[in-house]
Amino acid sequence: MISNLKQLKDRTLAKIFSKNPRLFRGWAKHSTFMRFTNIPWTPLKRNIRNSRLALITTGGVRLTSQPSFDMLDPNGDPTFREIPSTISINDLIITHNYYDHSDADKDINIVFPVERVQDLKTAGDISDVNHRHFSFMGHILGKHIHTLMNDVAPRVARMLKEDCVDIVILTPA
């Protein structure tokens, strides 16, 4: 019962923020986020046309065969899902109660442009699409922030590095 109420509250808030950008901006202005002074920087190693690209989304995208993200933990779910880049979009689903994904349910490319990056390769804008992309559920709070920063994100970075990925596009939701 309590879990149902939580999910209903989260989905209702997501719809309110989606329909009222000013409310969302007000919430963001008065909220506290991680604050950094330094900025990591890696210059492009080669021309974009000769680069291998991977996608990362925090839109809660997963394969229908993969476990759902945890929607009951109020601090979110810091785990990730590996998504094969040649997957049919019919095999993808979104689990995320913190934004209104009704439009993304119609066309997942608006949060996770898995088909469009293949179009970029076909058109010659990039040299290659990595064989896998990665997906997170981007509502991470409390103790999970430490897990994400110090364990999960560096692990995904190592996997992309092993794949010889040059460039990464990240999409929130």
């Binding site: 994400l148 995904v156 460039i167 596009i169 990240l170």
Partner: peptide, 15 residues
């Protein structure tokens, strides 16, 4: 936070 980790590992990122 994820983007910063990827960039720090040696890949160029944009979000």
């Amino acid at each position: 936070l994820i983007q910063r980790a990827i960039e720090a590992a040696g890949m160029s990122t944009i979000s």
